[in-house]
Design a protein around this nucleic acid. Structure first.
Lengths: 189, 189
DNA sequence: TTGCGCATGTAACCAGTTACATGATTTC
DNA sequence: GAAATCATGTAACTGGTTACATGCGCAA
């Protein structure tokens, strides 16, 4: 199962949208401030090579155009299958940890294009449900941290607030999907 | 400058509070859900050894007590100097990126005990100032992402909301410090 | 002709993950 | 004497960081 990194999945997701060269991908990571991914060639190019070795992408040299030859990568059927399997994993408590919260967001970011809005909405609901059952245990832990210095307690508090902000986001996003679904229903009438 | 990892600084901060063994530290990381640190022996023990090689901590075997021999680590003067230097770095735009936001929180978490509440408060103000100048540029970037599918746009949106939540936290924390300062002033009257 | 922007790549290094090994003491 | 708990450690692997190398075409 653990046959790919987060960066690898990010690359698969982007290549599912359109064929891109390594340089294109680097530019995307460099210009999208949200991304937690490095745009360094030492990260991107080896990652693309690994994906190719595993048969998840295929790169072809595109001649004649522009300056130096570009190697343009496309996702393969096998790659798409792997990507979808990764996105389809159930959300478990462990995914909630901050270390892995970026992974959930990445899974969600490409959901519309791989599975459509119904699945994206279902993902959000699962996410919100899991989060809202996790937060109370965090709050409880925080309550036991009274003897700490103020800065330490506040730092812990910021962690909890991150989760609460994420939950608010999920609920707002659910509402956004529901509203859009209603609108498209009306249009069909 | 880059002579220590985040984990290394976390260890230094905890050892500044009190002497601890590797096992103690593992338990702390395992039981504190906020921490983004691994409690695996393969992370902790090598990290402690590195800190010791660099003269930042010193471990002494504590005999006779309990089961197996424990090696208890203490921070050295050199270690404390290094820790304080790390905490004292100015906050720059690059620190705002999510990849490094955990580092700022860690720096802050131990601020009361190393520098006292005035410096902690100053840190929060610097943090809030830097954040509030960063967020508009994120919002602007988000505004240009209209052609994206909904899930992608929402994922970006969640990134921005993380920053906004962090800013609200900083402002609340500033207020908490100011209130406490006022109370201690009154007590002195 | 040199310097810049596009574009791909590699090599050394390093830290964390996973899994395993081991040692000492208490409890059943 | 088996199992559980405390406690320390190591080895193989892996992927990201940093820095460097290279190649092509265009413009100054």
């Amino acid at each position: 199962m653990k046959d790919n990194t987060l960066l690898g999945y990010a690359l698969l997701g982007l290549l599912h949208q359109q064929p891109l060269s390594g340089y294109d991908l680097r530019k995307i990571f460099a210009s999208t401030p949200i991304g937690e991914f490095s745009d360094s060639p030492g990260a991107i190019y080896p990652a693309l090579r690994r994906l190719q070795e595993r048969g998840l992408v295929r790169g072809v040299v595109e001649e004649s155009k522009g300056l130096r030859k570009r190697r343009v990568f496309r996702i393969t059927p096998k790659g798409l299958t792997s990507f979808k399997a990764w996105q389809s994993q159930p959300i478990v408590r462990d995914d909630m940890m901050i270390r892995r919260s970026g992974e959930l967001l990445l899974r969600f970011a490409f959901m519309d294009q791989t599975f459509g809005p119904e699945r994206a909405l279902a993902f959000l609901r699962e996410f919100a449900r899991e989060l809202s059952s996790y937060i109370p245990s965090l709050r409880q832990h925080l309550a036991h941290a009274n003897e700490m210095p103020l800065s330490g307690r506040l730092a812990l508090e910021s962690g909890v607030q991150d989760y609460e902000a994420r939950l608010r986001w999920a609920r707002k996003s659910i509402a956004a999907y529901e509203q859009r679904n209603n609108e498209s229903k009306k249009e069909r009438l």
